[in-house]
Design a protein around this nucleic acid. Structure first.
Lengths: 304, 304
DNA sequence: TCGTTTCTGTATCAAATCGTACAACGCTGT
DNA sequence: ACAGCGTTGTACGATTTGATACAGAAACGA
């Protein structure tokens, strides 16, 4: 087991020496040093990041085994991080564990005041709010109805989206393809949509995404499908697309964040919740099927 | 130094196997056993509780010194807690650190527990956790670096994604198209990717999405682009795609939710945060431009 | 008072630990 | 092709570690 590595020097020295390491997180420090590590050391870094503090708390030998390398590499790794001994490295970990587990950051930060400065934190809070609202709007009863639509193997399920929301439709379709025998994605060139309409049979299901600046063509497609007897599941924003009047079930997603555009995060969250519910409904079969597919892909597509 | 103690008396036998060590917190377990300890052992317990996990992570001798006692007392202490060896005790601590530091919800909820209770709420909580972590990892400094990459109008910005993450790349590209004069989406048929490589000039920026089951072709493209002098912004999961070693900036996104698949919500959140930051950087111009575009679309495409 | 019980620290030992020296290996420039 | 350099695993020694046996000291009961 000795694949001797290309050295990292071919990387054009991207980040200049980070100078000092003040009170920054060791985790962060490892991440930033990532480019400077050799191949084996990088494996060590990833093993450490994989389950962060614990790997480094074990003995050198066990850590090495976990990272698929040898003890000296571990020691070189900590040495490169600036520690003169492995014990020093572990002490640093201890300190970090101490502050992060004992300190005030254990619970929700709720950093009250200086919020205005931190853009990322503000938006994150908005995300969480929006997602919480979606989650609350998807009560068990609602989920049951939605599952009934999506698990009806007797009928085809179509996925349709607008300009932006097409991505959500595509994402949804991607998962459902592995959970339902008959699913189709209405692709984004609205000229060819008529073809899809030909295949819509009574009882079929149309999953539609439609967010503000509701698109006329999406509405038209939905109307035509409804006229042919399709049942519609609509994922839209909180202002309700006009399609809502045609829909059998509506999932409203908050989209407001402190920014110049509307957020799609809650929409994606809704999709993933629904997919989870479907998998749960289908039982272990679906779980295994998805896992198997993942592995298949893995072994088929690549080595690493 | 020997205050020999009154024995607790209510302790029947020194080491009655405390039944089991279920999933209860060790901290709590120690507190409840507090009365059954002898004097010296109680000092050990208090030393452990004083700064909770760290004391127990050290060596027996150091732990003893910290508690003002001797090594054998430490060993008797852990023995009374039901651990047969000091290593077992430390392993228990490790596990607890893992779950409490890696995230409250990251672990699968042990299969069919109260998961059915409210699926949506559970997953929503996981979403919020993940997003909060992304938000925290995007510190102002980091955002500044990222903005510098994305607002460099002298160079082209390419967007690249894998099987699933292509959707995120596409989403990102969609927005950036209106904020940068020269952006290109590397479309998903990896056969034709060579064409894009021809256009990659030194200093260009490659925004890459790569999540678990890292795809070999994405890695190859990134490597080739890096070799041609491209600067890489990588959005990946917390386990780090191998592309990380080539990247100038890495954004790690937590993907774990209590479900059978990995979540993309945090990734989308990261994208939207970054887009917001870019808009903020570009000032009112960008805001107006986006608003104008929205209106244009509205009046052009449709009535409602 | 004395013997028993319980608790606790000292002394000690085998085993495991960290750290280092060294050699094998691959890449790179001459 | 060759020498030099950097990387990585194996081997090994000095030290430390966890664990145990033992003895001293207090408390308790008779």
């Amino acid at each position: 087991m000795s694949t001797h590595g290309s050295r990292p020097a071919d990387a054009p020295a991207p980040t200049p020496p980070p100078a000092q390491t003040p009170a920054r997180s060791l985790q962060e420090q490892v991440r930033q040093h990532l480019t400077r590590f050799t191949d084996a050391e990088r494996r060590v870094a990833q093993a450490l990041l994989a389950d962060y503090p614990v790997a480094g708390l074990e003995t050198v030998a066990r850590f090495a085994k976990r990272a698929g390398t040898s003890s000296p590499t571990i020691l070189r790794f900590v040495s490169r991080l600036g520690f003169h001994t492995y014990a020093d490295f572990q002490n640093a970990l201890h300190e970090e564990i101490h502050v992060r587990l004992q300190g005030p950051l254990t619970r929700y930060p709720a950093r009250s005041q200086p919020a205005e400065r931190d853009l990322a934190e503000n938006i994150s809070r908005a995300f969480s709010d929006n997602i919480a609202r979606v989650g609350k709007s998807l009560q068990p009863d609602d989920l049951r109805e939605i599952i009934a639509l999506l698990c009806d193997v007797e009928h085809t399920v179509f996925f349709l989206g607008g300009r932006f929301s097409h991505l959500l439709a595509s994402y949804f379709h991607h998962y459902m393809r592995e959970l339902h025998p008959q699913v189709r994605l209405v692709r984004d060139t609205s000229a060819a949509w008529a073809d899809y309409l030909l295949d819509v049979k009574p009882g079929d299901v149309l999953v539609t995404f439609d967010f503000r600046r509701y698109q006329a063509d999406v509405l038209e497609f939905a109307r035509a499908a409804a006229a042919q007897g399709a049942r519609i599941l609509l994922i839209t924003d909180v202002w309700y697309s006009p399609i809502a009047s045609l829909a059998h079930k509506v999932v409203p997603c908050p989209v407001e964040i402190p920014s110049a555009f509307d957020s799609g995060v809650a929409g994606l969250a809704a999709v993933e919740i629904i997919v989870s519910a479907v998998i749960e409904e289908l039982g272990p079969d679906a779980r295994e099927r998805m896992a198997a597919l993942e592995d298949l892909r893995k072994s088929f597509r690549l080595g690493q």
